[in-house]
Each structure stands twice: as structure tokens, then as C-alpha cells.
Design a protein around this nucleic acid. Structure first.
Lengths: 342, 342
DNA sequence: GTGAAAGCGCTAACAT
DNA sequence: ATGTTAGCGCTTTCAC
């Protein structure tokens, strides 16, 4: 077998073998109606025999559609990025679209360079993804003309494009209601840095749920730190040292919750009997804690899927909606709050 | 501005404006020598003015090279996948290659489908990545002809392709030597499930290092469990209950180490004073433990870079080496072993 | 129902 | 040093 055995079999070869014209083969391959059953069969047989696979590049050049999406992220290391990408890839491949992955590191020069390549390669649309928590940002680093775009885990007012973010507020409401339903009334909150929008939305959600339930919100029970374990550990200690300590801890990240859990263990405070503990994010380690961590999930895969679908829709329909989609954050019930298991 | 304002400006338009032939424009754009400085300047100016960007699809069709890599993974959720992808993306974009991302979920039917698309889209090469710990596997689900391929985080003997995996054995040796250098002699090992190759290599590494140092290896100090926190917690308890307990714990994943740490805290055993603790993987939570976890790093980004470079090299040189590359796992010094900090 | 012809935007001999 | 020509492999009017 010679080296270049892959010497492309083309539509011509098939045509010749089937005794028809290339045009007819094309019609058959694209399931155009009005081809006689008989020729269709002959062509198909020939294609099969030659193991013919249409050259998508040639097709793309002719049709100026590539069935390819660009996905550009500012963080190809972050813990949230991957699940969203997975969602995008899922819906894309369901419609036999491919996705080209680019990492800008949050650097506008790199973003522009990548966007240029994506434009040159004629992708049919682009998803601009942020790996960090929800943020507002401006237009892409390069004017994209009328190429469909959707923003994922971030939003913009500088461009009329669909944006997909989690409903942090609603998630916090859900988590708080859960705690409330379990009879907890003094709910401590360990939050992340205040400059994140998520931090504020989540705190607001707690307040709202408390208010709706007629429970007074005690500011003394709120602590702000980093998103990490160490913060959770220290701040849980602080909170439990209070004269009138909380009977529940709502940690605004699972990492914080794990740190808090460690503090609670150290203090011989039982979870969930003495203090109910709930996290946020649903990272995969949450299931492996003692006790397994109840948490409000970031619907990352769903968000990715939604973004992908919005983009695909924009591509096929040629119209975009500029809506801000907030995806529901569902409660994931495990043991750290003491609710019955399903 | 009309909707289809992006009405592609082509090489013809530039040629016309510059008053030369399309061929000349092409030469200029591709930096072919032997174009007079003067025309080059004129063409460049025209291109600039029209904001001309060559259509890579047309170029690809003509040259049958796409400057695109396919990356197919069996796990677009796993904790190791992302960093490797990042490495691949890095080296690819350094050479202005794009990478198309596909997820097979480890399913051969899906793998074949994705491979077909990648072939149809004429990618220049393919990386087949496993997101789970090192494994041996067979050929791709579809014959790839002479398209360059490299295996990442897995290897095969069914195909003469380069494979890139971490040096688990060497990493375990390094970790053990570190413990030894700190005066520890009774080294407990908490390992993952035995059916992983990594599990065996790492244990072998510990034995080797012990042997080299003339320290006898005590089988009673080895425990096998899952890769998760809960396992680490339970097995650390078991180990510390021993009549003659270990003075160091080598946990073969950071998750296990975190669980073990939790057990040690519970037992009021000080880390590192009473027991030195070392993990494996260098997950990002390792830095946020109390004390921060010393660990043997999985060189995932490096591995991705190497795989990418091998593929790029295979593409440009038209030749592959079928070597098995084991990438060194470096020690990441933090506080859980008591070594001086740098 | 099927085929001939033109062309998507580019590159690469080859000629000049 | 520059232009002419002939495709790359496919789709798509438009005849027949």
C-alpha cells in the first residue's frame, strides 16, 4: 500500500463508477428529491464501494458554511470552564457541528488574534466564554460583523447578543428556603469576595428568602472571604465563636463549605445535627465529604447547552435575540443539611 | 450598513485596487521572495485599505492543509483533561493552528463518528486523549490512513504512534525520597484501586526508593481504596490505629490526602510534626489545605504541550516516531511534610 | 430525472 | 518580477 493511499476519492470517481454525472452524485449525497430510486441506489453503491467521503472543505468553500463553531474562553484552566464546554460540544455534535477551541487567557490581544483565525476559517458562529464567575464585559476584541455570537457565563450591554448566566440569586433563595424548611432560623453566610457579582446576588437571595419567610436577617452572621477552603475554615470558626452562633451555614462555594466542615469537625460540632451546612457550585468533591455536602448546583452543562443551542439557532435562522438568560441553579440534596434522602 | 456587509473582499479586489494580478497578491500575502519592494508595498496598502483577510477555506482546499488539529477525548468532564487540553491549545496556537474539540465519552461509536467528521474536515493531525489515569488502548475507532496521530495520557501497541504519559513510577520515587530525606522511615501508603496502572507504578516507585535507601518496606503500611477523600479518611484512621503507626503518609491522590488530613486532625495528630503528609496530582485545592499540601505533580500541561509538539512535528516532517514518552512528575513543596519553604 | 457548465477564493506551474 | 492559466472538490442554476 503506497504512502499516499488516501489519495482522495472524489465525487468524480463515484460518478464514473456509477455511470452518472458528478452533479447527480452530489444530489444523491445531499438527499435532493427528484433523483430516481434506481440511480440513487447505483450511486450509493458506488460511493460505498469506493468508501467515498465528501470533502467538507470543498463543500464549505462552495456553500460558505463550515458547520463549525468557535469557542473562545478566557480561562482554559478554571474549574467551571470544562463543564460549559462539554455542554456546548454536546449540542454542537448532536447537529454535526464541530467546535474550535481557543484560549485568550483574558488577554485582548490574544483574543483578537484568535478571533481573526476563527473569522478566516469561516466559523459559522462564536461563543465567548468566561471561566470566572459571572461578569460584565464589552464587545469582542475584533468586530465580528454579523457573525452570530453568544456570551456564556458573562454578559454585555455593548452588543445585542444572547447571554447565558446562572441564576445566582434564585439559587441562594432555593438554598435558604431549604434550610428554613428544616427548621433552621439562624443562618450564617460565608461568602466570597464582594467584587464578584455572584457574591452580591447570592447574599441578596438569602435576604430575600429570609424576608419572605418572615425571619429576621442578622448581619452579624455574614462573613466575607476568599472562595477557598482556608477562608471557610477561619470564618466558620469566627461564626461559631459568636455568643449566639448560627444553626446553619450557607457557604457560597463548595470549597468554603469544605473548609467550614473542617472547622466544625474540629469544634466537635455535629453536621447536620447541630449545624446544617450547605454549599454552592456542586463541585465533584462535594459528594465525597463527611457528610456528603448538600449544595446549590451551578448548572454549567445546561448553560453550555443553552448557549450552544442559541448559537445554532441564530445560525440557522439568521437572527439573534439579545436576551439575558438566567439558568436555574437546582438544589442537590445530600446529607449535610439533614433532609431525607431520595 | 447592509446586512451582508461582510461581502467577502477577495484577492481579486485587492489585485484590482493595487493594479496587479491576483497571483501577485497571493505572492505578497505569502511572503514569496522575488516581488519588487514597490509592488509589495502597493499590494499591502491595498489589502490594508480593503481590510482584506485571505479565505483560509479556499487556501485549505487548494493546499490540502488546514492548520487544524483534532483533539478527541473520552472524558470532557474529568479533572485532568482540561490541563492537557490547555497545553495542546497553547502550542497549537503558537503556530497558528486551531484545535477542534470532540468528546467521545469513551464510546467507540461516537469516537468513529467524530473521527469521520475530523477526516472530512481534513484536519492535519489528531490527538487522542484519555481523561482517566494512564491506560493502554487499541487503535482509533476508524482507520486514519497516514494521518499523524498522537496518544495522550494513554498508550497503544496497536499502532506505531507517539504516546505521552506521566512518569508515575519516577514521581513516587521522588516523593518517597523527599520523605526519607526528612528523616521519615515508616511510610504509610494510601493508594487508589489496583486496576489502574498508576496505582501499581506508584507503589513500585515507593518500594524502589525505600530499597535504594536501605529502608525495609512494610507491607502492613499499605492500604488500597478509591481515589476519593472518604477513602483517605478511613484508611488513614486504619493506619494510625496500628500498633506501630507510620510517621509519614504518601497518598496517591490529593483527594485521598485531603481525607487523610481530616482523619489526622480528628486524631489530634499534628501535620507535619507527628506525621508528614504528601499527595499526588497537584490539584488546585492542594494549596488551600491546612497545612498546604506537598504533592507530586502530574505534569499535565507539559504533557499536553509535548503531545501537541510531537503532532506538529509529525505534520511538518511527515514522519512519526512511535515512542512512549514518560514526562517527569515534579515535587511541589508546601508545608505538609515540614521541609523548608523556598 | 439527469448533465453541462460555471464558479466558490485561493495557489502554483509556467510563460513572459 | 509579474501575469496567465488551470485547477483543488464540491454545488447549483439551467438546459435538455
Amino acid at each position: 500500500m503506497k504512502r499516499n493511499s488516501s489519495a482522495a476519492v472524489t465525487i468524480h470517481d463515484v460518478a464514473q463508477l456509477a455511470g452518472v454525472s458528478p452533479a447527480t452524485v452530489s444530489k444523491v449525497m445531499n438527499n435532493t428529491p427528484y433523483v430516481s430510486e434506481e440511480t440513487r441506489a447505483r450511486v450509493l453503491a458506488a460511493a460505498q464501494k469506493l468508501n467515498f467521503r465528501p470533502n467538507r472543505i470543498a463543500r464549505s468553500l462552495k456553500m460558505s458554511r463550515t458547520s463549525t463553531l468557535g469557542l473562545i474562553t478566557d480561562d482554559l484552566e478554571g474549574v467551571f470552564t470544562m463543564s460549559m464546554m462539554r455542554g456546548v460540544e454536546e449540542v454542537a455534535s448532536e447537529q454535526s457541528f464541530s467546535v474550535i477551541l481557543s484560549n485568550s487567557y483574558g488577554d485582548m490581544t490574544r483574543e483578537r488574534a484568535h478571533l481573526e483565525v476563527l473569522l478566516d476559517k469561516k466559523v459559522d458562529g462564536i461563543i465567548v466564554l468566561s471561566g470566572y464567575r459571572v461578569r460584565q464585559r464589552g464587545a469582542p476584541a475584533l468586530a465580528l460583523g454579523d457573525l452570530p455570537v453568544v456570551y456564556l457565563y458573562q454578559y454585555t450591554y455593548d452588543l445585542p447578543v444572547p447571554c447565558v448566566i446562572p441564576d445566582d440569586f434564585g439559587g441562594a433563595v432555593t438554598g435558604t428556603q431549604h434550610l428554613l424548611s428544616l427548621g433552621r432560623r439562624r443562618i450564617g453566610v460565608i461568602n466570597g469576595p464582594t467584587h464578584y457579582e455572584a457574591t452580591q446576588k447570592r447574599l441578596a437571595g438569602v435576604q430575600q428568602a429570609l424576608h419572605d419567610a418572615g425571619v429576621v436577617f442578622d448581619h452579624a452572621l455574614v462573613r466575607v472571604g476568599k472562595w477557598y477552603e482556608t477562608s471557610g475554615y477561619e470564618l466558620a470558626h469566627e461564626l461559631m465563636r459568636l455568643p449566639n452562633p448560627p444553626d446553619a451555614l450557607f457557604c457560597m462555594s463548595d470549597s468554603i463549605a469544605v473548609g467550614a466542615l473542617s472547622a466544625l469537625h474540629e469544634l466537635r460540632i455535629r453536621v447536620p445535627q447541630d449545624v446544617a451546612l450547605i454549599g454552592f457550585d456542586n463541585r465533584n468533591f462535594a459528594a465525597h465529604q463527611r457528610p456528603p455536602l448538600t449544595t446549590v448546583a451551578l448548572p454549567l452543562v445546561e448553560m453550555g447547552r443553552l448557549a450552544g443551542n442559541l448559537l445554532l439557532k441564530a445560525i440557522s435562522e439568521g437572527t439573534e435575540s439579545a436576551e439575558l438568560h438566567r439558568v436555574t441553579c437546582p438544589l442537590v440534596l445530600r446529607q449535610s443539611c439533614g433532609a431525607t434522602m431520595t
